[in-house]
């Protein structure tokens, strides 16, 4: 059955997407471990279907400042992938790559931003590679875009992109664990509805039409 809205997904489909999230995030964690030379593991990945304002509360409130790396997917599936990097994560990266930490986001200059973009891009690409291998689909990615601003406005980007189709946003992703502590870097995949149908069909859990 083809779904018309995110909240029509059945439990088999949700389980499948959770598995995609698990494999994608797992691969991204491995890439991150290799980059910083320390073990990084993942928390249990989640598939969430949320109303807009609920999504913003979930990520931690609208005005909280955060760094975001965004990549747009096109080709056989369309979607947006975000790496939302909160300060603990930023410092984990900067400390291992540049040997420094920052007090707040104001301390990020060109070099620090480049490092964060690169790490975000590698994690996103690794996730998408795993996804495209799993479902046997071809996905093109844009050059990563970066901003430091209120996270409500960052989360609103995928919402606005698919807002004409749905009052909900779907995210697949999870957090990382480093040195026994959860590190808040959410890796969030938001496909549009058509692409979600394609993905489920390719993964063999939806007959399609």
């Amino acid at each position: 059955m083809r779904i018309k809205n995110y909240n029509e997904l059945n439990s088999l489909e949700l389980d499948t997407l959770r598995e995609v999230g698990s494999i994608g995030t797992g691969n991204a964690a491995t890439a991150l471990s290799a980059l910083i030379g320390e073990e990084v593991r993942i928390e249990l990945p989640e598939v969430r279907i949320m109303e807009y304002n609920e999504a913003i509360e979930w990520i931690g409130g609208p005005e909280e400042i955060t760094a975001g790396v965004l990549v747009k997917m096109s080709g056989q599936i369309d979607g947006i992938m975000l790496s939302v990097q909160q300060l603990d994560f930023v410092n984990l990266i900067l400390n291992s790559m540049l040997g420094k930490t920052v007090e707040d986001y104001m301390g990020l200059h060109e070099m620090e931003c480049s490092a964060l973009i690169e790490v975000g891009n590698i994690m996103i690409s690794t996730f998408i590679n795993a996804l495209s291998g799993l479902a046997d689909i071809k996905v093109d990615l844009t050059v990563p875009a970066f901003t430091v601003d209120m996270q409500g406005a960052i989360m609103a980007v995928p919402m606005a992109a698919y807002g004409g189709q749905s009052d909900y946003i779907m995210t697949i992703g999870g957090n990382f664990v480093h040195d026994g502590k959860a590190v808040p870097c959410r890796l969030l995949l938001s496909p549009d509805i058509r692409s979600l149908n394609t993905l489920l069909r390719k993964l063999g859990v939806s007959s399609g039409d």
Binding site: G68, L70, K72, T142, A145, D149, A156, V157
Partner: peptide, 10 residues
């Protein structure tokens, strides 16, 4: 415009 993404309507 929160992100500079080239191409598309985003």
């Amino acid at each position: 415009k929160m992100f500079e993404v080239n191409g598309g309507s985003l």
